[in-house]
């Protein structure tokens, strides 16, 4: 083994010397969230198409946490320029960044991702918590088969109307978001013991949705769910947040945990069904990496309510947030630790 490793390391050394990676890098490097990945790749593609003289950006989908580790590892060509994040950076991560010399980070909210729970505008108003949703929709709430037929079975304070929920099929990304944002927290709120469960047992108790009638698989078409809700005022529906905005005259967002879904609550992250999406940029890389400034401008041009990112399923941030994000990019405003506290 040493006999192989020795010449090999010599060759590697020689190669690393000639590949000269210490010099400036020509392409933009992005790491981070798989949720933001499709939007950043879409921007990268249009960046590529309209600027053929630039090198194509390299976007890796590593997940937010692993992405932050790489992003915060340091300043320089071997470290990424941009971080996709489906949540805000924590103060601890910000300090970890600073400890490695990664200061002057720009935080840009590009939009939001999420789902809304809604009912027909003329329906009797309901107000639910995530624990209610969990107890009404899980196949095995608290480990026992679900027998609830009306909302009153779930919580006597709720009206005795039958549980009918139109939602996305299990193959849908909206369903994944629903599981992550509603079912899992609801499960842990209604049944704290669930946090002890692991793997399949946890999924079985917390994420598996009942298939005995009350949950109606309504297909991938969110518009269809809106139509069904209007036809059946006792039902509630789960769909992408943008459809709620588009059909505001016909359906009404249900308050979840006391928060009604509006653009403000979605953008601020107060509404449990939505999460803001961010990109973090190293300001000190903007001058060093060719095209990074233009890439950010392309991003800003794409995130509007009728831009290409919304067509790919992103929720546009409200106008004030977009303006602020655009200003952060234009003026290079950096994030301070106080903003994260």
């Amino acid at each position: 083994m040493p006999r192989i490793a020795f010449p090999l390391s010599l060759i590697a050394l020689a190669l690393s010397a000639c590949s000269d990676s210490g010099a400036a890098r020509e392409e933009i490097r992005v790491v981070g969230s798989s949720t933001v990945y499709p939007f950043t790749t879409a921007v990268a593609e249009s960046f590529n198409n309209s600027r053929p003289d630039m090198r194509a950006p390299v976007i890796e989908s590593t997940g937010t946490g692993a992405g932050i580790n790489q992003f915060c590892a340091g300043i320089g060509p071997q470290h990424p320029d941009l971080l996709n994040a489906s949540r805000r950076m924590t103060i601890g991560e910000f300090e970890q960044c600073a400890a490695n010399g990664v200061t002057e980070i720009m935080e840009v909210q590009v939009g939001a991702d999420g789902l809304a729970i809604a009912q027909a505008a003329q329906a009797q108003p309901l107000s639910l918590t995530r624990a209610h949703l969990y107890r009404a929709l899980a196949a095995n709430p608290m480990g026992r088969p679900n027998t609830a037929r009306t909302w009153a079975d779930v919580d006597p304070a709720l009206p005795a109307i039958p549980i009918t929920v139109f939602g996305p099929p299990s193959t849908s990304g909206t369903r994944d978001s629903f599981n992550e944002l509603m079912m899992e927290p609801g499960c842990e709120a209604a049944w704290p013991a669930a946090a002890e469960l692991e793997g399949d047992a946890y999924d079985e108790a917390c994420v598996l949705i009942r298939s005995d009638g009350p949950y109606v698989d309504a297909g991938e078409n969110d518009n269809l769910i809106v139509q069904k809700l209007v036809a059946d005022p006792s039902a509630i529906g789960i769909f992408g947040f943008s459809y709620l905005e588009e059909n505001a005259s016909r359906v009404r967002g249900l308050p979840i945990d006391g928060t009604t879904p509006t653009y403000e609550t979605v953008a601020s992250g107060a509404y449990p069904g939505a999460r803001p999406l961010y990109i973090y940029v190293k300001k000190r890389h903007i001058r060093a990496v060719p095209g990074l400034a233009a890439f950010l401008e392309d991003y800003a041009a794409a995130w509007g309510p009728d831009g290409p990112l919304v067509r790919r399923g992103m929720i546009a941030a409200p106008a004030p947030v977009r303006e602020r994000s655009a200003a952060i990019i234009a003026r290079g405003m950096t994030l301070s630790a106080d903003a994260l506290r």
């Binding site: 392409e27 790749t41 593609e45 390299v58 989908s61």
Partner: peptide, 17 residues
């Protein structure tokens, strides 16, 4: 080593992504 990435163009040389 980061070869699982979206790259919109073909690599030009041994050192390009």
């Amino acid at each position: 080593i980061g070869m699982r990435a979206f790259i919109g163009s073909a690599p030009e040389d041994l050192a390009s992504p």
